[in-house]
Design a protein around this nucleic acid. Structure first.
Lengths: 345, 345
DNA sequence: ACCGGTACCGATACCGGTATTGATACCAGC
DNA sequence: GCTGGTATCAATACCGGTATCGGTACCGGT
């Protein structure tokens, strides 16, 4: 197999014109049954597979759909991607993923790069892009779906939930169980704007009751080990530190379930009664928690569904469906207090 | 912004020819400083970004590199992808991901689809593709790197380790601690060929000592809940079932750390001394285990490194580096017995 | 003043497909 | 037998870039 086979080779092998071959392979009409057979056989025989570059350039359509997420190591985003992949299965569309590493400079570059492939649509995590990135998206001329958040103005469509609201709701739920002495453990809040929003909402709800965090730790400010550790180890470490400073907390809010799980591990090892003495609250409803059902309060978010819904919105646009989903879809997280809720009743 | 901007628009705005504009934007030589400036300014002003389709078609080069993995929900693969992304950062190459869902039909389609984009290279998980898929890869004419496995003949390059060997080594290590009554818990072994290889290796090592699994469970055969549950919940469930049937096991080997962790959770809840009475062994060295350091024996695999190495091999080919890495790279997992190892000494 | 070399620029020919238009053959209907 | 319609195919013109090559202008050297 010296040179790559082209449509011309197929046409020659089938004894028809390039155009007829093209139509035959795409299942276009205006081709006789006999020729369709001949062309398909010829294509298979010489091992031909198309060239998307040429096809897309010529037809001004692509079956790519770009997905931009901040991270792969946070399991939440692979789950979203999984939803996207799932929704696209069966359609001609194929997802392309880009990772920004929570860096808006990188995000701009990636989005620009993706747009230059003229995708059928773009799915981007978050609503808080800088102005130039937003402009890029707004002028792209393809459907844009922003996901995972809805605190803000979407460029086009939007599938997600309010992080501020989620934070506030969790605080309210915890307050209702009688907790009053709150601590907070987070990581990389300067970059993870959605985690910062949750903290903000939580904080607001506390202030409404005249309360405040007694102490907070943001892992980003830590040096060395703790900064590079996995989220679980980090959560464990930071919780130990927080409790050393403030032994009499009765509730710790973590920016996510991984950190919270780390916190739980510390407490179990230290013999601290959970949730009796201290309530732990995370975010996301990760399967991690299934190991210790009820120990950690969490907000279950619909990651897969968000991915699926976002993909479907783009699918509908591409396929020019007559009935389209709403441009803005809120999939509110459901709070699960676990044992904490049980003791309350 | 009515019609999409093209290079001609930029050229017109800059008052130069299309060709000069092209060269200026790509940083080619043979363009005066003044013109480079003019073109770049014009491009920025009218909001031009290139068209990769046209560029790649014309230059017969793409900066895409396809990555085919079986799953996104198993954290191992996002970690590999993360490694790939990381290694490619700074280069012009961009990864495109495809998910096969452990289905070889889907795998064939995805690889075919990816090849039709004329990528600079392909990274594919596993060595056990069916013949037609292998032929596709072999004839692709671009560097192919198969990853995560090395039990078999690679099409081109290969970065991974021996799963059979990993299973055997783990069995030997456990045997050395005096364990004799082995059970096994796995899931989807019919599709997850690598997990099946580990089991096989483990089994071989047992037989070398005249032993055998006393009982095994494969989650794939379960109906309903257990099949759709998360791996952790599944591990918990299956472990309970296994121990109900065989209460006197002194060691359970799980096909991965998620299942093993689920098993640990069951044992903790049931008050079973781990690893005193029963030793638990998983595979992968997931961060999950950091919550309970030492409780579960595992083989740490270098996921990120595998991704990085694979990407680098393709990078070297693309950049025609004079010194190239080996075509076959084995990154042997390291066994960590945890507390089990400590008690032994 | 002439020559060769270098720096710079643009016209042209593709890349491998698809959209469009035009051509041909064949059929029914009058 | 002629007309109009339909089915089928081929020729041509792109799509938006890049490779290639030829031309111009300007330079120093002789």
């Amino acid at each position: 197999m010296k040179t790559r086979k082209t449509l011309v080779d197929v046409a020659a092998a089938a004894g028809v014109s390039k155009m007829t071959a093209s139509r035959a392979l795409r299942g276009d009409k205006d081709v006789s049954e006999a020729n369709v057979e001949k062309v398909k056989r010829a294509a298979r025989k010489i091992g031909y597979y198309g060239n998307h570059l040429a096809a897309s350039l010529s037809s001004k359509r692509t079956d790519l759909i770009g997905v931009v997420v901040p991270s792969l190591t946070n399991i939440v985003f692979p789950q979203v991607m999984s939803g996207v992949t799932n929704a696209l299965k069966g359609s001609a569309l194929q997802p392309v993923f880009g990772v920004t590493d929570y860096d808006s400079e990188t995000e701009y570059d990636i989005i620009r790069n993706m747009l230059s492939w003229r995708p059928a649509g773009l799915i981007v995590a978050g609503l808080d892009q800088p102005d130039d990135t937003r402009k890029l998206l707004a002028d792209a001329g393809v459907p844009i779906v922003q996901i995972m958040d809805c605190d803000g103005e979407p460029v086009d469509a939007c599938v997600g939930f309010s992080h501020t609201g989620a934070g506030r709701d969790m605080a309210s739920a915890l307050l209702a169980t009688g907790r009053r002495r709150f601590g907070y453990v987070g990581r990389n809040l300067d970059k993870d704007t959605r985690a910062a929003k949750r903290k903000k909402g939580f904080h607001e709800a506390l202030r409404d009751q005249g309360l405040d965090f007694i102490d907070t730790i943001d892992g980003a400010r830590l040096e060395g080990d703790a900064a590079t550790q996995s989220a679980i180890a980090c959560g464990r470490h930071l919780t130990a530190e927080l409790l050393a400073r403030q032994p009499d907390l009765d509730c710790i809010h973590f920016s996510n379930d991984d950190l919270a799980f780390g916190g739980l591990c510390h407490c179990l090892a230290a013999g601290i009664d959970i949730p009796g003495r201290i309530a732990l609250a995370g975010f996301n409803g990760l399967s991690l928690l299934e190991g210790f059902p009820g120990k950690i309060a969490t907000s279950r978010t619909a990651r897969r569904e968000i991915g699926e819904t976002a993909a479907r919105i783009i699918l509908e646009t591409v396929e020019e469906a007559k009935v389209k989903s709403d441009k803005i879809q809120i999939l509110t997280p459901t709070i699960s207090l676990g044992d904490l809720g049980a003791t309350k009743e």
